[in-house]
Amino acid sequence: MNKRILEEKIFKILMYVSILIVLGSLFIIISLVVANGATSLSIEMITQTPTGGYYLGKSGGILNAIIGSLFLALPATGLAFIISLGIAIYLQRDFTNPSISSFIRLSLDILWGIPSIIYGVFCLSIMMFLGLGASLLAGIIALTLLEIPIITRSMDESIKMVPNGLKETAYSLGSTKFETAYKVVRKQAMPGILAGVLLGLGRGIGDAASILFTAGFTDNIPTSVFDSTAALPTMIFHLFSSPIPGVRQKAYAAALILLVIVLCISIISRFLLRKSSKFILK
């Protein structure tokens, strides 16, 4: 009798400890990045590209990496969004029979689990095969592939939740399959779709392994898709690998910039989610 209550008490304490560990690690991460990053953050860091001896501690900034990250992640997310929307709609029962869609879901699950470094290696192999080297384009493709399973998964989940009655209503008004999917189902599933896209964007902008080889690294802002480009995560990685402490300090500032961008994406997504939930049937 008392043993049962005791057991519950013990596990309750363990739960508190666990959640404290989880929140504590987030707190440590944010405070470390802010404390270390803020000291070496300056205006020139976000307005200038690196000068000759930047990696030896000379002046300059990481504008090339900030621009590069946006050039990589935004088109990649756009592409991944279009492709994912197509797949997610196609996965509905109206379009495919369940056995095919379960196969597609399985392969998406496998893609979800493939490490980003493999996407990087894969894309570079294809690029070399086509006679192109590391470039913005290769980086975009790698990130697109990385984001597709992430975005599709959350779209699929939210589209699956759309009540059947709603679809039936649309059909009974004479809509075609695609119209139903695009005009009705999409609206109802909008919050989930948005959440998926922003999840993908966040993942894409923060991922280093897939663009480590594909996007290359340069001090210049890319002018065409065949130029190689720096990005924030790879920049952090490079700065971090430097043996000079002053340069390493800049990695923290870059990390702070990246974290702020990611946080902004997260806040925007919450805001958009709330806004897009207005027309939703509960």
Partner: peptide, 11 residues
């Protein structure tokens, strides 16, 4: 926490 990039975790 889910959105923190892996490079920041490493750092």
């Amino acid at each position: 926490l889910a959105g923190v990039p892996s490079v920041v975790f490493g750092l």
